[in-house]
Write a protein that binds this DNA or RNA. Structure first.
Length: 139
RNA sequence: CGAGUCGGCCGGACGGUCGCGGCAGGGCCUGCAUCUCGGUGCAGGCCCGGUCGAGGAAAGUCCGGGCUCCACAGGGCAGGGUGGUCGGUAACACCGACCCGGGGUGACCCGCGGGAAAGUGCCACAGAGAACAGACCGCCUGCUGCACCUUCGGGUGCGGCAGGUAAGGGUGAAACGGUGGUGUAAGAGACCACCAGCGCCCGGGGUGACCCGGGCGGCUCGGCAAACCCCACCCGGAGCAAGGUCGAAAGGAAGCCCGUCGCUCCGGCGACGAGCUUCUGCCCGAGCGUUCGAGGGCUGCCCGCCCGAGCUCGGGGGUGGACCGCACGAGCCCGUCGGCAACGGCGGGCCCAGAUGGAUGACCGUCACCCGGGCCUUCGGGCCCGGGGACAGAACCCGGCUUAUGGGCCGACUCGCCCC
């Protein structure tokens, strides 16, 4: 698991982020990111969650993918602006990918989704967002 | 040495960097309470080390239990399960020993192993005939047609009609006991001896299934019960998403159903939206009733029975969390005693995952193991390069069963050949 303060724990939050967040897809995974309110100074740290469906593989495979993604995500989530919520969904091909490939796709997807956010007029907190993709995936 | 049978075990090791969950503890800080003003207790935050952290199948969810809630006087019907005997166990459909039947030279293996003279039903294909059966070929007898032979009585060959016959051929998984004999026109359990099988009786052994020996009888009387069925024994229902606690008081708890979407062990579960109902507490109004008993329960049904002072109707509001259950148990290891064994008694030691978007890990290195190739070799092996490591992830907990699984280790036993 990710550190407690970085975990996404409610089903409603998962649904929310997947439906309303910005999205970026790579061959191995899809990232959904929902930015927090930039005016909220007291916002809690960025939080993230993982979705690994049965399409990826059996129980053993899914747990392994989860653990690999979680470790890749751990280093990235701290760099995300406070209040950000993130959901990473593994694609079926993730089941046979190694950690390096998963990490590369994760960084690429996160980079896209955060840069888009900084350009969008609705996101006035673009300056707070790092130029480098951030956001590890918790499970 | 070579074939083979059975049983048990392991399921990589070590290290480096980073990280997660549980438990107990220490230090510092803040707040509250208490205070003998040193301190103590509770709650929260930060830091520090300590310790534990997936499997033999955690799997399939097929049996059996614990535990929880609901129900329960008793009986019957229906329904489900089990099926050699004795034993083990909390219990079982599991385990052990034994019995019976079958297979193997043997170690050993296999058996869904009650009843088919209680009834119903079904036995394909082949075959003449398949369940109180059947005459295709054959065999035999009588009558008869033709041909030939004749010692004129008849005989032989080929055929027809009527009848006898289950010994032989042929079909089949199975053909109405087997072998030998008597008998006969030919035959037949028609009769005789022995054997097999069936039933009954007697004696002996065993807790028992059953086994051993003897006698008598009629002479033989198929299979399928995982077809219905009969017999004996066992079984209340739902499941940790069980169930419980807390805060909140015109409050609380729970259920049903429709639509969309997602997940799913395909039973269901969850999210959002809409609607309905019940229980408890409360307020208002009306009615019925307390032995002349309102009303309720027996959760598949019936008989029958039980509880019982309250009950019925109308009107009035809302749909989320935290915690407990939740890990010390039919527990594991060692010794000893009883038992063929499964297993049990006693003594000592040990604490061994408890997550909840769900921890038990990510990356790297070294060694060991297996496979392939090459080089060297004192033939034991050594070195180098490349590749491989399966099946599979706890979710209330145990006991089993079944299925999946690369590779490796250990033990007991059997048969054959050779040597001493």
């Amino acid at each position: 698991m990710l550190p407690p303060e970085h975990r996404l724990r409610r089903r409603t939050e998962f649904t929310d982020v997947v439906r309303r967040g910005r999205r970026a897809s790579r061959p191995l995974l899809t990232v959904h990111l929902l930015a927090g309110d930039p005016a909220d100074v007291a916002a809690e740290p960025a939080r993230a969650g993982l979705v690994v469906s049965k399409a990826v593989g059996g129980s053993v495979v899914r747990h392994q993918v989860s653990r690999r993604l979680r470790h890749q995500l751990r280093d990235l989530v701290d760099a995300l602006p406070a209040g950000t919520r993130l959901v990473v969904r593994a694609a079926p091909a993730a089941g046979t990918a190694d950690s390096a490939s998963l990490g590369a796709d994760l960084r690429a997807a996160l980079d896209r989704v955060t840069r888009a956010g900084s350009v969008t007029p609705t996101s006035t907190s673009a300056s707070a967002a790092p130029s480098r993709p951030a956001g590890p995936m918790p499970r």
